[in-house]
Protein backbone atom coordinates (compact mmCIF):
# COMPACT_ATOMS: atom_id res chain seq x y z
CA UNK A 1 0.00 0.00 0.00
CA UNK A 2 1.37 3.38 -0.95
CA UNK A 3 1.74 5.77 1.97
CA UNK A 4 0.04 8.99 0.92
CA UNK A 5 1.04 11.06 3.97
CA UNK A 6 3.49 13.31 2.07
CA UNK A 7 0.96 14.16 -0.63
CA UNK A 8 -1.77 14.84 1.90
CA UNK A 9 0.55 17.21 3.76
CA UNK A 10 1.45 19.09 0.57
CA UNK A 11 -2.16 19.37 -0.63
CA UNK A 12 -3.42 20.49 2.77
CA UNK A 13 -0.87 23.30 2.70
CA UNK A 14 -1.85 24.30 -0.86
CA UNK A 15 -5.50 24.50 0.14
CA UNK A 16 -4.66 26.58 3.21
CA UNK A 17 -2.59 28.93 1.05
CA UNK A 18 -5.52 29.47 -1.32
CA UNK A 19 -8.03 30.02 1.47
CA UNK A 20 -5.76 32.65 3.04
CA UNK A 21 -7.15 35.41 0.86
CA UNK A 22 -10.90 34.92 1.04
CA UNK A 23 -11.90 37.73 -1.30
CA UNK A 24 -9.62 36.72 -4.13
CA UNK A 25 -10.62 33.09 -3.64
CA UNK A 26 -14.33 33.91 -3.94
CA UNK A 27 -13.65 36.12 -6.99
CA UNK A 28 -11.71 33.28 -8.60
CA UNK A 29 -14.55 30.84 -8.01
CA UNK A 30 -17.07 33.29 -9.49
CA UNK A 31 -14.73 33.57 -12.47
CA UNK A 32 -14.84 29.85 -13.19
CA UNK A 33 -18.61 29.82 -12.64
CA UNK A 34 -18.68 32.47 -15.37
CA UNK A 35 -16.61 30.28 -17.70
CA UNK A 36 -18.99 27.38 -17.14
CA UNK A 37 -22.08 29.52 -17.74
CA UNK A 38 -20.62 31.04 -20.92
CA UNK A 39 -19.98 27.62 -22.39
CA UNK A 40 -23.46 26.55 -21.34
CA UNK A 41 -24.89 29.62 -23.06
CA UNK A 42 -23.23 28.51 -26.27
CA UNK A 43 -25.14 25.20 -26.16
CA UNK A 44 -28.35 27.01 -25.35
CA UNK A 45 -27.91 29.47 -28.25
CA UNK A 46 -27.35 26.63 -30.71
CA UNK A 47 -30.43 24.73 -29.63
CA UNK A 48 -32.46 27.90 -29.57
CA UNK A 49 -31.99 27.86 -33.36
CA UNK A 50 -32.00 24.15 -34.18
CA UNK A 51 -33.84 21.25 -32.58
CA UNK A 52 -31.31 18.58 -33.35
CA UNK A 53 -27.58 18.85 -33.95
CA UNK A 54 -25.46 15.87 -34.91
CA UNK A 55 -28.21 13.53 -33.79
CA UNK A 56 -28.52 15.10 -30.34
CA UNK A 57 -31.45 17.12 -29.01
CA UNK A 58 -31.06 19.83 -26.35
CA UNK A 59 -31.29 17.39 -23.41
CA UNK A 60 -28.72 15.06 -24.92
CA UNK A 61 -26.45 18.01 -25.65
CA UNK A 62 -26.79 19.11 -21.99
CA UNK A 63 -25.76 15.63 -20.88
CA UNK A 64 -22.69 15.72 -23.15
CA UNK A 65 -21.88 19.22 -21.89
CA UNK A 66 -22.24 18.17 -18.24
CA UNK A 67 -20.18 14.99 -18.50
CA UNK A 68 -17.31 16.63 -20.36
CA UNK A 69 -17.27 19.65 -18.05
CA UNK A 70 -17.32 17.54 -14.88
CA UNK A 71 -14.39 15.46 -16.10
CA UNK A 72 -12.42 18.45 -17.38
CA UNK A 73 -12.98 20.56 -14.25
CA UNK A 74 -11.80 17.80 -11.93
CA UNK A 75 -8.75 17.07 -14.08
CA UNK A 76 -7.97 20.77 -14.42
CA UNK A 77 -8.34 21.25 -10.67
CA UNK A 78 -6.04 18.37 -9.78
CA UNK A 79 -3.38 18.33 -12.53
CA UNK A 80 -4.12 21.39 -14.68
CA UNK A 81 -0.90 23.03 -13.43
CA UNK A 82 1.21 20.42 -15.23
CA UNK A 83 1.26 22.51 -18.38
CA UNK A 84 2.80 25.34 -16.32
CA UNK A 85 6.02 23.34 -16.23
CA UNK A 86 8.19 26.03 -17.90
CA UNK A 87 7.43 28.27 -14.90
CA UNK A 88 8.69 25.55 -12.56
CA UNK A 89 11.78 25.11 -14.73
CA UNK A 90 12.57 28.82 -14.71
CA UNK A 91 11.97 29.20 -10.98
CA UNK A 92 14.25 26.24 -10.31
CA UNK A 93 11.47 24.50 -8.35
CA UNK A 94 12.06 21.49 -10.55
CA UNK A 95 15.53 20.93 -9.10
CA UNK A 96 14.05 20.92 -5.61
CA UNK A 97 11.70 18.13 -6.76
CA UNK A 98 14.64 16.01 -7.91
CA UNK A 99 16.27 16.11 -4.47
CA UNK A 100 13.14 14.92 -2.64
CA UNK A 101 12.54 11.22 -2.09
CA UNK A 102 9.28 10.98 -4.05
CA UNK A 103 8.47 10.18 -7.68
CA UNK A 104 8.62 13.31 -9.83
CA UNK A 105 5.21 13.01 -11.45
CA UNK A 106 3.51 12.43 -8.10
CA UNK A 107 5.28 15.51 -6.71
CA UNK A 108 4.22 17.66 -9.64
CA UNK A 109 0.64 16.48 -9.44
CA UNK A 110 0.41 17.18 -5.73
CA UNK A 111 2.35 20.44 -5.92
CA UNK A 112 -0.80 22.46 -6.60
CA UNK A 113 -4.56 22.11 -6.57
CA UNK A 114 -6.73 24.79 -8.16
CA UNK A 115 -9.72 24.90 -5.84
CA UNK A 116 -11.26 27.74 -7.83
CA UNK A 117 -12.24 25.23 -10.55
CA UNK A 118 -14.95 24.12 -8.13
CA UNK A 119 -17.03 26.90 -9.65
CA UNK A 120 -17.08 25.37 -13.12
CA UNK A 121 -17.50 21.90 -11.62
CA UNK A 122 -20.59 23.04 -9.72
CA UNK A 123 -22.18 24.45 -12.88
CA UNK A 124 -21.50 21.14 -14.64
CA UNK A 125 -22.97 19.04 -11.81
CA UNK A 126 -26.18 21.13 -11.80
CA UNK A 127 -26.48 20.78 -15.57
CA UNK A 128 -25.98 17.01 -15.20
CA UNK A 129 -28.85 16.83 -12.71
CA UNK A 130 -31.08 18.85 -15.06
CA UNK A 131 -30.17 16.74 -18.10
CA UNK A 132 -30.76 13.46 -16.27
CA UNK A 133 -34.12 14.73 -14.99
CA UNK A 134 -35.27 15.90 -18.43
CA UNK A 135 -34.20 12.78 -20.28
CA UNK A 136 -36.39 9.71 -20.21
CA UNK A 137 -33.78 7.22 -19.14
CA UNK A 138 -34.51 3.56 -18.61
CA UNK A 139 -32.47 3.33 -15.38
CA UNK A 140 -30.95 -0.01 -14.56
CA UNK A 141 -27.72 -1.14 -12.94
CA UNK A 142 -25.87 -1.03 -16.26
CA UNK A 143 -26.81 2.65 -16.83
CA UNK A 144 -25.66 3.66 -13.36
CA UNK A 145 -22.39 1.75 -13.72
CA UNK A 146 -21.82 3.31 -17.13
CA UNK A 147 -22.40 6.81 -15.77
CA UNK A 148 -19.94 6.36 -12.89
CA UNK A 149 -17.40 4.62 -15.13
CA UNK A 150 -17.65 7.46 -17.64
CA UNK A 151 -16.95 10.18 -15.08
CA UNK A 152 -13.97 8.29 -13.64
CA UNK A 153 -12.50 7.36 -17.02
CA UNK A 154 -13.23 10.78 -18.54
CA UNK A 155 -11.41 12.49 -15.68
CA UNK A 156 -8.52 10.06 -16.19
CA UNK A 157 -8.46 10.88 -19.93
CA UNK A 158 -8.26 14.64 -19.36
CA UNK A 159 -5.65 14.15 -16.60
CA UNK A 160 -3.62 12.09 -19.07
CA UNK A 161 -3.87 14.92 -21.60
CA UNK A 162 -2.52 17.41 -19.05
CA UNK A 163 0.27 14.99 -18.10
CA UNK A 164 1.22 14.43 -21.73
CA UNK A 165 1.16 18.20 -22.22
CA UNK A 166 3.47 18.55 -19.19
CA UNK A 167 5.90 15.99 -20.62
CA UNK A 168 5.94 17.78 -23.97
CA UNK A 169 6.72 21.09 -22.24
CA UNK A 170 10.21 19.76 -21.50
CA UNK A 171 10.83 19.68 -25.25
CA UNK A 172 9.13 22.91 -26.26
CA UNK A 173 9.58 25.35 -23.41
CA UNK A 174 6.86 27.94 -23.96
CA UNK A 175 4.99 25.29 -25.94
CA UNK A 176 1.84 25.88 -23.90
CA UNK A 177 0.07 27.18 -27.03
CA UNK A 178 0.81 23.92 -28.78
CA UNK A 179 -0.23 21.63 -25.94
CA UNK A 180 -3.32 23.73 -25.20
CA UNK A 181 -4.65 22.49 -28.54
CA UNK A 182 -4.86 19.03 -26.98
CA UNK A 183 -5.99 19.93 -23.47
CA UNK A 184 -8.39 22.83 -23.92
CA UNK A 185 -9.02 21.85 -27.55
CA UNK A 186 -9.79 18.33 -26.37
CA UNK A 187 -12.19 19.71 -23.78
CA UNK A 188 -14.00 21.69 -26.49
CA UNK A 189 -14.15 18.70 -28.81
CA UNK A 190 -15.51 16.52 -26.00
CA UNK A 191 -18.49 18.87 -25.60
CA UNK A 192 -19.62 18.53 -29.20
CA UNK A 193 -21.98 15.97 -30.71
CA UNK A 194 -19.26 14.07 -32.56
CA UNK A 195 -21.31 13.78 -35.73
CA UNK A 196 -20.86 17.51 -36.43
CA UNK A 197 -17.19 16.76 -37.19
CA UNK A 198 -16.01 15.45 -40.56
CA UNK A 199 -14.92 11.81 -40.32
CA UNK A 200 -11.14 12.40 -40.11
CA UNK A 201 -11.66 14.71 -37.13
CA UNK A 202 -14.05 12.24 -35.50
CA UNK A 203 -11.45 9.50 -35.87
CA UNK A 204 -8.83 11.84 -34.40
CA UNK A 205 -10.96 12.75 -31.36
CA UNK A 206 -11.93 9.10 -30.85
CA UNK A 207 -8.86 7.01 -31.53
CA UNK A 208 -5.90 9.42 -31.27
CA UNK A 209 -6.91 11.90 -28.58
CA UNK A 210 -9.82 9.93 -27.17
CA UNK A 211 -12.05 12.76 -25.95
CA UNK A 212 -15.12 11.36 -27.70
CA UNK A 213 -15.07 8.73 -24.94
CA UNK A 214 -15.42 11.35 -22.23
CA UNK A 215 -18.99 12.45 -22.89
CA UNK A 216 -20.41 11.81 -26.35
CA UNK A 217 -20.16 8.01 -26.45
CA UNK A 218 -21.39 7.48 -22.86
CA UNK A 219 -24.26 9.96 -23.41
CA UNK A 220 -25.41 8.15 -26.55
CA UNK A 221 -25.39 4.85 -24.66
CA UNK A 222 -27.05 6.21 -21.50
CA UNK A 223 -29.84 7.83 -23.56
CA UNK A 224 -30.10 4.67 -25.66
CA UNK A 225 -29.76 6.64 -28.90
CA UNK A 226 -29.00 4.77 -32.12
CA UNK A 227 -25.28 4.30 -32.69
CA UNK A 228 -23.47 4.49 -35.99
CA UNK A 229 -20.38 3.12 -37.73
CA UNK A 230 -17.87 5.40 -35.98
CA UNK A 231 -19.75 5.31 -32.71
CA UNK A 232 -21.46 1.99 -32.02
CA UNK A 233 -23.25 2.02 -28.67
CA UNK A 234 -21.01 -0.69 -27.18
CA UNK A 235 -17.99 1.58 -27.67
CA UNK A 236 -19.15 3.54 -24.60
CA UNK A 237 -18.10 0.58 -22.48
CA UNK A 238 -14.57 0.94 -23.82
CA UNK A 239 -14.10 4.29 -22.05
CA UNK A 240 -11.81 2.74 -19.39
CA UNK A 241 -9.71 1.25 -22.20
CA UNK A 242 -9.43 4.69 -23.78
CA UNK A 243 -8.28 6.01 -20.39
CA UNK A 244 -5.65 3.29 -20.12
CA UNK A 245 -4.45 4.08 -23.65
CA UNK A 246 -4.30 7.80 -22.85
CA UNK A 247 -2.26 7.09 -19.72
CA UNK A 248 0.21 4.84 -21.51
CA UNK A 249 0.87 7.66 -23.97
CA UNK A 250 0.95 10.28 -21.18
CA UNK A 251 3.37 8.20 -19.13
CA UNK A 252 5.70 7.85 -22.10
CA UNK A 253 5.56 11.60 -22.80
CA UNK A 254 6.33 12.37 -19.18
CA UNK A 255 9.23 9.91 -18.97
CA UNK A 256 10.66 11.19 -22.24
CA UNK A 257 10.32 14.74 -20.90
CA UNK A 258 12.10 14.15 -17.60
CA UNK A 259 14.84 12.15 -19.36
CA UNK A 260 15.25 15.03 -21.74
CA UNK A 261 15.57 17.45 -18.81
CA UNK A 262 18.26 15.30 -17.20
CA UNK A 263 19.92 15.12 -20.60
CA UNK A 264 19.75 18.78 -21.54
CA UNK A 265 19.61 20.51 -18.21
CA UNK A 266 16.54 22.61 -18.97
Amino acid sequence: MVDLTPYRAILRSRIRAQLQYRTSFVTDILGTVGVGLTELAEVWVIFHNVDVLGGLDFTAALLVFALSNICFSIADMVVGHLDQLPTYIRAGTIDAFYVRPLPLLAQFMSSEISLRRIGRLTVAIIVLAIALARAEIAWDTATVVLLILSVLSGTAIFSALFTAAGGLQFFVVDGAEFTNAFTYGGSYAAQQPQRVFPDPLRIFWTFVVPTAFVAYLPAVAILDLPGNVLAPTWLAWCTPLAAVFAWVVAGSCWRAGTRRYQGAGG
Binding site: D3, T5, P6, R8, A9, I10, S13, R16, R100, P101, L102
Partner: peptide, 11 residues
Protein backbone atom coordinates in the same frame (compact mmCIF):
# COMPACT_ATOMS: atom_id res chain seq x y z
CA UNK B 1 4.60 24.69 7.42
CA UNK B 2 7.57 24.05 5.14
CA UNK B 3 9.16 22.02 7.93
CA UNK B 4 5.93 20.09 8.49
CA UNK B 5 5.60 19.28 4.79
CA UNK B 6 9.24 18.26 4.41
CA UNK B 7 8.97 16.02 7.46
CA UNK B 8 5.99 14.31 5.79
CA UNK B 9 7.85 14.07 2.46
CA UNK B 10 10.71 12.30 4.22
CA UNK B 11 8.19 10.20 6.15
Amino acid sequence: ESFTILAAIHR
